[in-house]
Write a protein that binds this DNA or RNA. Structure first.
Lengths: 176, 176
DNA sequence: GCAATAATACTCGGATAGAGTCTGTCCGAGTGTCTGGGG
DNA sequence: CCCCAGACACTCGGACAGACTCTATCCGAGTATTATTGC
């Protein structure tokens, strides 16, 4: 059982986007460079976050991704569900309903899960409950306690490296 | 993220083996028939349980699998770990240590997990804690409350259908 | 009738293919920006 | 100088291959049973 790598990527990206102004967008290429990730694949993950209403994207030049709502309103579960989907890890295939001593529907209804399924689901629910109780802002707070200077460095790197075009903007006095 | 189907199979098989006498063995073929499962693949799963010390196997005729210890001493986590392995679902790939603003080792040591990894691991630990708090005997208790007659039916089916050979044993009076 | 022996059939156990999902990549649709020309 | 039109470059978005894990299967090693043979 392995969680998609995209969850880690998505969480870090959300934290970094929260450092900037709420209206500022960052193209996926910049985020990919920040973490040395394959840009197209990271784009795929951020698309999923967009579909889930966590990020909002704008096409065209000066476009990119930005948070759709404050970091305090994004739970870890929101991100996990956006990347992994809603299906639970443990999926009962109802083997108890098969074979020579199959549980008949008369004993109890179709929709009632078996004891095994119920126990596994309770444990998984505890996991999801923990994920839902933590917002990404908490993660950012811990991260800033760890490395206070990182926020500034990331912000400056994200906005500083030519987010507004410098292509044709020659240095002052170079205009001839 | 998807948990192996073998976990469901293994849990049901443990419950069923606990119905019989502790010394009685059941071949995998019988258990596979009981749930209409591929026998060789179920065998693979039960092998994993054997390696984990949950089941004990005996080869040869009259052989098969039996519980290695009472059902009260087998936690759900034991079974999950036996099938799925010990690695966590969320695996930090340390992307924060990469790229232009990578966290330097000087900030904090190599072994210290990042805030994202820590948060995810705490949630997963809660899940494992719940799994470790429930033993398979609890699951069996719930199952028997649900379908009280099933235990008897399963026991009779497991031991009754020629567990001792009837191949050459003709009916009484047929010998002459 | 009894014991020893060889054959037998049954069991697990690990090594070997196939399917599905996760990972990674590519190109196209859409949009804001920049350049050039005209009024 | 200001306005407009066209071309451009940049962005996301979904469609397309490759890698890895899960699923499923097969055959071999080992053992208790069973039939046979000799005493």
């Amino acid at each position: 059982m392995r969680m998609s790598e995209g969850v880690e990527w998505a969480l870090h990206c959300c934290v970094d986007l929260s450092i900037l102004e709420p209206t500022q967008t960052v193209p996926v290429n910049r985020l990919a460079t920040l973490y040395d990730l394959p840009p197209a694949y990271l784009n795929k993950q951020l698309q999923a976050l967009g579909r889930a209403g966590i990020l909002r994207s704008t096409p065209g030049p000066r476009g990119g991704f930005r948070l759709a709502r404050p970091l305090e309103e994004i739970t870890l579960l929101d991100v996990v569900v956006a990347i992994e989907g809603t299906q639970p890890a443990f999926r009962c295939t109802n083997i108890i309903r098969r074979g020579p001593v199959a549980e008949s529907d008369a004993e109890y209804g179709h929709l009632m899960p078996c004891a095994v399924s119920q126990a596994m689901r309770v444990a998984e629910l505890a996991w999801r409950r923990h994920l839902a109780a933590r917002v990404v802002a908490d993660v950012r707070a811990v991260a800033e306690l760890r490395a206070p200077r990182r926020s500034t460095m990331v912000r400056e790197w994200l906005v500083g490296k030519g987010n507004h075009r410098e292509r044709k903007r020659r240095p002052c006095g170079d205009r001839g």
